[in-house]
Every structure is written in C-alpha cells, then in structure tokens.
Design a protein around this nucleic acid. Structure first.
Length: 493
RNA sequence: GGGCCAUUAGCUCAGUUCGGUAGAGCAGCUGACUCUUAAUCAGUUGGUCCAAGGUUCGAAUCCUUGAUGGCCCA
C-alpha cells in the first residue's frame, strides 16, 4: 500500500544492512556475553572520578536509542531493560574500518559494546568503546526521540514500540506483575491454596454477563469461556479445601470501555467456616498490603485525586449510602417513586421489576460515582445477589459487600449461599428475570448436586485485578494495564 | 447502540475559522566537526491530507456515506 513511501525512509536501513552483509558481518547474532546489565555497571562505577578509567573492561548490550556524530568521534546511548548508558566511540580507538561500520548503524539496532568505563566532563558515566558488535539489525524506524509515541491506537496495537519508547509504560507493567505476585504472596502466607479451574465451561455461571461460545470438535460440544470461576471454586469447598483462590482470566462478551476489556484478570477466594465479615477484612488487608509492600505508601494519587487507603475503611449499608449521598429514602419511597426518579435519568426499567432491583439501580445511578475514598457498601438486596446468603439482621438484603474506590467497584464478596434448594430457587428466578441473555438458560444441576452433598459455610471474595492495578499505576484506562488489549482489527480484507 | 471529537511526511504537530501552489520540528540523506547529550552548523529527500462520492472554476478545508481510534452516555 504505502510501499513506495515507506521505502524512502527504510531504504537507507536496507542499504546499511547491505553494506554490513558485504563486510561479512552477520546482522542477527546468536548470543552476547555481558559482564553485567547497564544498571549493574552504572552502580559498580558510580564513584569513578572524572578523567579516570575503570580497570575492568566491561561488556554491555542494548538497543541504540540515540547517536551524535562529531566527525571522528561518536556519542550515543544504548538501553537495556533496566537503564541506559552513554557510549563514546573514537576513530582512534576502534580503527578506521570499524569506525566506518559503526557509522552505518541505525537508531534501533541492538548492539554489544566492550570497553572501559569513564566519566565525561559533564559527569556522565560512559563506556569508552574499544570493540562493538551488531547483534540485531533494526529495519524500521523508531518513533521520534523527543515526543515519543503518543498515538494511543499505535501504542495499544504495537505495544512493543510503546514499551521501547515510553519508559513509564514498562514500569507500569512491571508494577502489575509485582502487585499480582504480592497478592499471591499475601494469600499463600495465610494458608490459601492456589488452584486452576476450567476456563471452558458447559454452563457459564457465577456472574451475570454474556459469555463467549466455543466448540470442542472431538466431543462435538459447545463450550463457553468462563465468565467467573465461582461455581467451580465452591465445588472445591465441598471437596474439603478450606481456603482456595484463583487468579486468572475471565471472559465477558460485552462492550469495551475504559473499565472493560473482554478478557480480564480476576481474583476469587473462598474461606470455609467464615462469613462475609471475614472476607471483607481480607479484602481490606490485601489492598493495604499491596500499598505497603509494593508502593510503600497508603496514600495514592489517582487521576489527580488523593486516595487514602489507611484502614479501617468506612462501611455503609447500601440503603444508608443512598440516603447519605442522594437524600433518597428507599425505605419510605414507593416502587413507583423510585421508578420515576430512575426514568428521569433515562434508566431502563424492566417489566415486573422488584423493589430490591430498584434499590440497586438507584445506588448505581445516584451514589456509585461519588464513592471516591475507599468504602465498603454492604447489605445488597437479595434479588441482585443470587449467590449470597440473606442477612441475619436485615431481611430482604444479603450478607454482601462491594469495596468502592474512585467511584468504581473493585470487588464483590458475600456469605456464600450453601442451601441447595434456596440456590436452585434463586437460579430459576434469575432465568425468569433475565432479558439480555446475561444468564445461562440452564441451571447448573451438577453444582446444585454438590451443594446437596454439603458445602461448609463460607465467605467468598472476588477482586478485579486490572482495576485494582489501575489505581496503583494511576492508569486512566484498563488498556494501560493490559499488555495487548482487544482492538478491532485494522484494514480487513 | 447513541452523542461529540480526531485522522495531514516514519514520529510529534501546524494549516480547516473565511475554499486559492502541502508546512514545521525530529528522524532520514549529503557535507563540516575527536567530551557530546533534544549536540551544533550548512544543504537536502520525503505527501493517496483515512476512504469513496458530492458541491465548486478550484477542496486537506464545505456536504454525504463509510473505516479506525479517543472521550462521554447507555
């Protein structure tokens, strides 16, 4: 398509490659023995005096990210996964022929250099190159050095460019891994067992969401990618595991937004003999532990808003939260009054909607976005909590909570319903009420059977890991914490 | 699904108000320069202005449709 235009900018690289091949140099080497990473070498030589040279000859490798040619000397920087270091090449040091070859290198090439370390007049620790080796030829230009790569579409589609050019992007993804490791560490220390349950499920359960459909050929079987692992983890409680968790992908066949990617990472954990209060505490401890261990602070700034994670977090019953933030008294108001309020905001109301559903909608519509500081919303209406036990103290409401930060739900937990007959009834009601294909048409009979065998009382918790990571990395979009977010393919045939 | 906005050189962006020769910086190329670092200096190449239609003597600019992305809403 743009081959003619592209060739203009690529031509010189192809010509440089040709030059190198003619010199008998292999442009794609097999390995390079380094004496250290750039960070290690910088650290080792940090006290070197200006004008002095290190005793050791070091061997370093990295991508060439800048070049400054000055006739018979060249300055540049190479960058590895941890840092960058300046290199200094003198014609006198490496000889005429090597110098001519070096001049044919392009920004983006990956090279290995050998030399002593010294400090320049301006105080920068620098490699005085005595030998160099082209390790990988780069045939396409990198984004511009000063402004970098800003186009979000290219950043997401070609994440490798984003990672090469934007250092903070790489840091955020390193932070993501640290956070997930710390979650595992935290749970493992408390005696949890990490497990893996099916991604492909016959009946997609455990949440309200549209599933992806796939097919197993040998069994000629339609299967769904899981929308949640919940019903399988509960089977493990029946089987006798008492503390289990899973961190893995869920798939939901729904819209894409700043908060939604079709595949996303979920933490779910279950504790036998515990109720929702126990897992609420775990949720709080878990988030605070990440703040302490990974960031070293409990006060984080998200999108310009200071968020104080210091425990204990506020707890508010859903109906009280509605009262506090909107002045609506859901106890006193009739269903029709609530419907009128919601309709004014153009919220769709299904036929035969229950009071509980109206309360949940009112909460979503009038309260959610105002919950900036961490808060647990508790006591959700039973009708919207089909997998939770009804409250001992507050009939019509479930022993359920959701932690909110910056107006966003980051988790969900409850005292798990373990009465098989009640569970079956709730599933049936859900199917009747479902209008959008967000609930499986079929009841998971095997799960009900497991409950009949007997699941111990248990508390369960789910946390949207990507959303949590968004807070800790100050990422405005979920796409900034997922390496390869789903995008529509370009230029379809 | 709806609304708004964007799409111009490899990258970052002007130019669109009010239609009149397609612009800059960086990158690339040529030359000078043996401590520079957004190197500097001189010169220079590079364009399907997202696509297709339309209006017009004339369209990057106005209109229509579509594509992709972003933000907001559902």
């Amino acid at each position: 398509m743009n081959e003619k235009n592209e060739s203009e900018i690529i031509k010189s690289r192809e010509e440089n490659l040709k030059f190198i091949l003619e010199k008998g140099i292999m442009p794609y080497k097999y390995s390079f023995q380094r004496t250290g990473t750039i960070n290690e070498i910088l650290e080792k030589n940090k006290d070197i005096k200006e004008g002095a040279e290190s005793e050791d000859v070091e061997m370093l490798a990295g991508r060439l990210i800048s070049l400054r040619l000055h006739g018979k000397t060249i300055f540049g920087h190479i960058k590895d996964s941890g840092n960058k270091i300046q290199i200094y090449v003198r014609k006198d040091d490496i000889g005429e022929e090597q110098y001519e070859i070096f001049k044919k290198l392009d920004i983006g090439d990956i090279i290995g250099v050998e030399g002593k370390i010294f400090k320049t007049r301006t105080g920068e620790i620098t490699v005085k190159v005595s030998k160099f080796e082209l390790l990988t030829k780069s045939l396409l230009p990198l984004p511009e050095k000063w402004h970098g790569l800003k186009d979000k579409e290219i950043r997401y589609r070609k994440r490798y460019l984003d990672l090469i050019v934007n250092d903070n992007v790489k840091k955020n993804f390193e932070l993501r891994t640290k956070i997930i490791k710390e979650i595992r560490n935290f749970l493992d220390m408390q005696g949890f067992l990490e497990v893996e349950t099916p991604m492909m499920q016959l009946i997609p359960g455990g949440a309200k969401a549209k599933p992806f459909l796939t097919h197993h050929n040998a069994l000629d079987l339609d299967l769904y990618l899981r929308i949640a692992p919940e019903l399988y983890l509960k089977r493990l409680l029946v089987g006798g595991f008492e503390k289990v968790y899973e961190i893995n992908r869920n798939f939901r066949n729904e819209g894409i937004s700043i908060k939604h990617n079709p595949e996303f990472t979920m933490l779910e954990l279950y504790v036998a003999y515990a109720d929702y209060k126990v897992v609420m505490q775990i949720a709080e401890d878990l988030v605070v532990n990440i703040a302490d261990k990974v960031l070293g602070t409990r006060i984080i700034e998200y999108q310009g808003e200071k968020i104080d994670l210091t425990p204990p977090w506020k707890k508010l019953k859903m109906t009280d939260a509605i009262k506090e933030y909107s002045g609506i008294d859901t106890e006193k108001e009739s269903e029709q009054e609530l419907i009128n309020r919601l309709k004014q905001r153009e919220v769709e109301i299904r036929q035969g909607i229950t009071k509980g559903e109206l309360i949940a909608l009112t909460f979503e519509e009038f309260v959610e976005e105002k919950l900036i500081q961490p808060v647990f919303i508790t006591d959700f209406p039973v009708e919207v909590s089909p997998l939770a036990k009804e409250s001992r103290k507050n009939p019509g409401f479930a022993e359920r909570f959701e932690p909110y930060i910056f107006g966003r739900e980051i988790g969900n937990g409850f005292s798990e319903l373990n009465d098989p007959k009640e569970q079956e009834k709730r599933f049936k009601e859900q199917i009747e009420q479902d209008t959008g294909g967000e609930v499986a048409r079929v009841i998971d009979k095997d799960f009900i059977e497991a409950l009949k065998v007997g699941m111990p009382p248990a508390g369960g918790l789910g946390i949207g890991v990507d959303r949590l990571i968004m807070f800790f990395t100050d990422a405005p979009s979920i796409r900034d914490v997922i390496l390869f977010p789903l995008l529509r393919p370009q230029g379809s045939e």
